Measured scan of single mutants.
Amino acid sequence: MATKAVCVLKGDGPVQGIINFEQKESNGPVKVWGSIKGLTEGLHGFHVHEFGDNTAGCTSAGPHFNPLSRKHGGPKDEERHVGDLGNVTADKDGVADVSIEDSVISLSGDHCIIGRTLVVHEKADDLGKGGNEESTKTGNAGSRLACGVIGIAQ
């Protein structure tokens, strides 16, 4: 089992970053940390998408990683996509320092995120509470600013 993974985020604009993942036990939580720069100040949706395909930019990554066919939600919700990591918060300089621990994603097994795409979005994720159909699919997080395929790390 891989215990570490990394993702280099890039987009068409100024947004870029490096996100690290570490899972010490196969059924334990995954620590997610790193930094994203070039964002507007505020909240930005942060999700693992189904495919590791960036051939047409971030759009070819498909929908959120959702092997259990659930509705979109927040990272602490029972009803959520596996890939729903909530929001990252950018400061006035456009930098989001990421520090998350998640017990639904994994670096092995059915919820493995390796080979899938991590995406940072234009807007805040409403965590499935926006009151419309799009909220239950995407959290109304808007366009995909930057993305990268999650790969095994040393």
Rank of each mutant, 00 (worst) to 15 (best):
R144D: 07
D93F: 13
V82A: 12
G17A: 01
I150H: 00
F51T: 05
D77G: 08
I36P: 04
G42C: 08
A124M: 09
S103V: 05
L145V: 13
D102A: 08
K4W: 14
I18E: 05
L107E: 02
N54C: 15
F65R: 06
H44S: 01
D125C: 14
G34A: 03
I100V: 10
K129R: 11
S35Y: 05
V98Y: 01
N66H: 03
V119E: 04
L85Q: 00
V6L: 14
R80Q: 05
T117R: 08
T40F: 05
L85M: 06
H111N: 14
R116G: 04
A124C: 11
V15K: 01
S143R: 13
S143V: 12
H44Q: 04
F65N: 05
V104G: 11
R144E: 08
G17L: 02
G62T: 05
S26E: 02
T117Q: 12
I19W: 01
V30F: 03
H121E: 07
R70E: 04
D53P: 12
V98S: 02
D110R: 13
P67S: 04
E22M: 10
K76T: 12
G128M: 11
P29T: 15
S103N: 09
T117V: 15
K137A: 07
P75F: 11
S99G: 13
G73N: 03
G11R: 04
A2L: 05
N87D: 07
G42E: 00
T40C: 15
L43I: 02
E133D: 13
G73K: 03
T117P: 04
G52Y: 15
G13A: 09
A141D: 07
F46E: 02
A2I: 09
R116A: 07
K37Y: 07
G131F: 14
G28H: 15
G11F: 00
T89R: 07
A153C: 13
G38I: 02
N87I: 07
V15R: 03
P14A: 13
A5K: 02
V30S: 04
R80D: 05
K24Y: 10
T138W: 06
L118V: 08
P63K: 02
K31C: 03
G139W: 05
V8W: 14
S143N: 11
